[in-house]
């Protein structure tokens, strides 16, 4: 029995070492962010006094307030569009196995093999022609399109496996129309998968950089990753400021993750299983 205890103790020590190793980047980030710009001591050393000046300077110079708003705006509206369009499309695909629906399902899920970035050149040109460059609208629409396949896939699987048909049939006999049935009867039952979709959208769209970099070049519409990227370009010799800006940019999602940890881990794993 005692050998078992020793073994458990060893495993705990091993786990502790792994934790420390994984925390090194965060440690470096934090020590760097609290030192003044003229302090060139090693990043490993803790600062002698904690200074918040970097955070204030970074917040103002990188216009992180605007970026925070833009990220939240784009993520929110993309998520709403994804949930509405995705669940609407999934319902007929899950319920009626006609030839048309089989083809549509194949099409929706099949476009997942096209990496979104591969259509960059034509898409950028279309956006310029439509006069939508540097608008939050284009980021919302494009993010919706990029994650729609996955959303439809998740919703279809969920409706097929867990939503009973009997309820809809009962509602239909009562004379309810299709859309009424969908929004009143079916949609409320989709809560668990909607939560998953929401988490996946929040993480991926909040962190999206590829498309934001092309479509949102103007400072007024920049999202957090784009703002950090241009801030790094302007301050590559003053990493203290970059570190402070990065911490501000990471905080919202990190806090959300720590509070809703279980849902994040389960949700993202489910989305990954697509």
């Amino acid at each position: 029995m005692s050998s078992m205890k020793v073994q458990k103790c060893n495993l705990n020590v091993l786990a502790l070492c792994i934790c420390l190793l994984h925390l090194v980047p965060f440690y470096i980030l934090i020590t760097t962010s609290f030192k003044s710009s003229s302090n060139f001591s090693s990043m490993w050393k803790l600062p002698s006094s904690f200074q918040f000046d970097n955070f204030i300077t970074a917040w103002n110079q990188a216009s992180l307030g605007t970026a925070l708003f833009n990220s939240a705006f784009i993520t929110f509206f993309s998520a709403v569009l994804l949930i509405v369009c995705g669940s609407l499309a999934a319902y007929p695909l899950a319920r009626k196995n006609t030839k048309l629906n089989k083809f549509m399902y194949f099409l929706f899920v099949g476009v997942m093999v096209i990496p979104p970035l591969s259509v960059l050149v034509p898409l950028y040109q279309m956006v310029v022609d439509a006069g939508l460059l540097n608008t939050r609208l284009i980021a919302v629409l494009n993010n919706t399109a990029a994650f729609l396949s996955m959303t439809i896939f998740l919703y279809t699987g969920f409706i097929r496996s867990t939503v009973p048909k009997e309820l809809e049939e009962a509602a239909r006999i009562d004379g309810a129309g299709t859309l009424t049935i969908f929004f009143r009867v079916v949609f409320p039952l989709l809560k668990p998968i909607t939560a998953t979709v929401l988490i996946i959208c929040c993480v991926y769209i909040w962190n999206d950089f590829q498309f934001a970099l092309f479509f949102l070049q103007d400072e007024n519409v920049q999202t957090l990753p784009v703002a950090i990227n241009s801030f790094f370009g302007a301050n590559s010799t003053n990493l203290h400021l970059v570190a402070a800006a990065s911490i501000v940019a990471l905080l919202p999602m990190t806090i959300l993750f720590l509070v809703l940890q279980r849902y994040f881990i389960e949700g993202l794993a489910q989305g990954a299983v697509k």
Partner: peptide, 28 residues
């Protein structure tokens, strides 16, 4: 083991962070 939940959280945390910013952190 006792360290299970905290280790899982720490290993998982970077998944939710912007890859671009993660790159900058490692740049340091």
């Amino acid at each position: 083991i006792k360290m299970r939940v905290i280790t899982r959280t720490i290993i998982y945390l970077p998944v939710i962070i912007s890859p671009l910013i993660m790159g900058y952190i490692w740049y340091f």
